[in-house]
Amino acid sequence: MRFSISALLALSLVTLPDLASAHHSIQAQFDIYKTITVAGTVARIEFINPHSYLTVNVKDADGKVTKWAFEMTGLAGLRRAGLSRADRGGLKPGDELTVIALAARDGSNSGLAQELKMADGRDFKLLADAPDAPPATSR
């Protein structure tokens, strides 16, 4: 499969301020010390409760498409990160990108999106560290 999962142990403390009050505990679903990297194309972006979702189509060498689901911050957080309408610099279905996310603890094709790197060079950081957090060493 084309996507690579690099399980990188975060040596620094991971802070996720924008999702701290999600309707479930972050650590009940995601491994806050394990990052995955998934490359594909945007299938769908949904601004919904309780979490926004980005669905990514990931194609393997045989052309088989697997869907990945990435939970994201709320609308305001996305907007702060520069993500809104596609014609204001946001995503649209078909865009190629690489998603850096916290891994799902149940091993499913999902994660908590931290950063979106677009093929054209745009880079959206969705879950910034706290202002005085030590520099992240894992990404």
Binding site: H23, Q29, Y53, S108
Partner: peptide
């Protein structure tokens, strides 16, 4: 649309 609870461990 709730999609997470099935994935909580």
């Amino acid at each position: 649309s709730e999609r997470d609870l099935a994935h909580t461990v």
